[in-house]
Design a protein around this nucleic acid. Structure first.
Lengths: 327, 327
DNA sequence: AAGAAAATGTCAAACCATTGACATAAAAAA
DNA sequence: TTTTTTATGTCAATGGTTTGACATTTTCTT
């Protein structure tokens, strides 16, 4: 592959001249420019970013760690993050952790070795020790790692609260929450807090809480836990699921068992990331502004990379999207 | 950040010794090893992959170009490719093209500049000129770029054929195919060929063909074209959609319009990438072995990177998955 | 004890691009 | 004409590793 030197030799100048021209450092005469362009053309020269990175100590790579790509919420995160990153001339190094702590830790080592300029994390990573040594800036989406790592999330408490209000208004009284285990995923657990506290305020004493496992999350399959749910709480008339995949599978269970949604039971999901609109009936859900959150994450990480400062916590509002599963 | 030299100085040896030890080139005495390990530990040393890449001319990065991350098929592709790539100690540089030809072309330039070791392409790219100059190996999934670029696909013709047989056996006589435009996406168009030729063989003369647009694909929203479909072909009793997203939205339309699936109309999708099982009723679909295809793609690209040879064309079998939407 | 072989090191070039410090030629100002 | 500017170049160090070519020390043979 052609190098700067090859180009310079062919154009009859030195590498400095070529480099200067490419980086607009100083004026180069038109005839010289032409010669250089022609040499670049004939040699099919493309600057070596690796060499450039080594010298400038900037890789223009941003790492993104997600627990999964097939989960709709995270698929949307990948899509938007890539869009904004590439619009800023950065490249995306994608890491899928499968919620596996060891893998996550290896990814951090790899990202450091690769000298990425920054990392966006949307996976567990309670492994703060590793992060203390991590020199590049980090921001998180829907996770809180530590106080000095800026986080971006949606208002999960409000989301839970909205869901509760909505189901109560719709006349439900026997309510069930189903979602991830409380020791995994701090931000999303506020959904439960918002949900049950709002129920309390409305004098519904008991919230039935069902926990899903990490395995369910990775496999996108909650059928077992859903069957249990209906066996044990057959009197349920309203369900709040902490993501749309769970909610969709509840709809499916109901379809199979000929339980009429929304007449017999109402279902509210969470995320609104593509799936909810495709369900039959379409899913009432709490919409996270994923696009805005990702945009903010990218802007903040770049801000940090450039030595700036960003808010340590950004919270976006959520919105109830009423569709057929609860009307 | 600590360098090899820092480690060597602290351990009282030269950089060569340290490098040799790290790369197991030659024996290093135990006491020396201990000193080096200790120095690495205290300095929190991590080798600089950028410098390494520059010298070895190997970045250990593989580029993946997909048209979208939120489309279920491609989300699965991303998931599996990342899994296999990282298992082989490679890193994934993800590019999302939005089916945008210009963006694709920029990505290729960027990937070349980044000196990636190989590229897996699952996006359009009829822009072969660019690729001729692309020195790193390329393999494609579900696309054919040119004869000398190895491709991996599923048996799309057989898939269309399976769908036709199935719908015929189920008693449908007024059949509709709905899918992407024929000049976009060569491999998937064989689905239509297999479908309509099979119908012909069974003396069904006419196949109604409806084309979806790129915009529909990117927005994951086919509602307009679906409404048209039902308005113009109200006598349809069987639909074959070239992907599950379209099929899911057909189910949704039917739900809304109180058209009974499968009694009034039967629907068969394509892909079986997570969405189909979540529909209500669950979707009969043609299953592509995405996992196997991705595994093969990664194995082949690595084979090529290492200077080996791979088949120029690999075709995986597909499978009819019968579910509620056609039974 | 002497020479050969093995073990353990050291030196310095190479990878490719960027850039501060200079050098020279050409044009403008005095 | 001489001195300043300006335009256009050149040289060489730098970034962090790897590695071929040697050098020295230790261990083994005979």
């Amino acid at each position: 592959m052609a190098t700067l030197k090859d180009v310079a030799d062919m154009a009859g100048v030195t590498v400095t001249t070529v480099s200067r021209m490419l980086n607009n450092k100083v004026n180069v005469s038109d005839p010289t420019k032409q010669k250089i362009y022609k040499a670049m053309e004939t040699l099919d020269y493309i600057p070596n970013e690796v060499a450039r990175s080594l010298l400038t100590k900037k890789s223009n790579v941003i790492g993104l760690i997600v627990p999964s790509a097939v989960n709709f919420f995270f698929a949307a995160v990948i899509q938007y993050i890539e869009e904004y990153i590439s619009a800023h001339q950065y490249k995306l190094l994608l890491c899928i952790s499968d919620l596996n702590k060891e893998k996550e830790s290896e990814y951090f080592t790899m990202l450091r070795a690769s000298r990425v300029d920054g990392v966006i994390v949307t996976s567990r990573t309670r492994d703060i020790d590793k992060l203390i040594n991590f020199k590049a800036p980090i921001v998180t989406i829907e996770r809180t790692l530590s106080d000095d790592i800026p986080s971006i999330s949606s208002d999960n408490y409000a989301g839970g609260s909205l869901a509760a209000d909505h189901l109560l208004k719709a006349g439900c009284r026997n309510l069930v929450y189903i979602g991830g285990s409380p020791d995994l995923d701090v931000e999303a657990n506020k959904r439960l807090a918002g949900f049950s506290e709002t129920l309390h305020k409305n004098n519904i004493k008991e919230t039935v809480v069902i926990h899903t496992s990490e395995r369910d999350f990775i496999n996108l399959s909650y059928s077992e836990v859903i069957e249990n749910l209906f066996q044990e709480y057959s009197e349920a008339d309203g369900i709040f699921a902490s993501n749309d995949v769970i909610a969709a599978q509840i709809l499916q269970y109901c379809y199979k068992e000929r339980i009429d949604v929304p007449r017999q039971i109402k279902v509210v999901g969470y995320d609104d990331a593509g799936l909810s609109a495709l369900c039959s009936p379409p899913l009432t859900t709490i919409r996270q502004p994923i696009m805005e959150m990702c945009k903010c994450a990218v802007e903040n990480i770049i801000q940090l990379i450039e030595g700036g400062t960003v808010p340590s916590k950004v919270i976006f509002p959520v919105q109830l999207i009423e569709r057929g599963s609860s009307l």
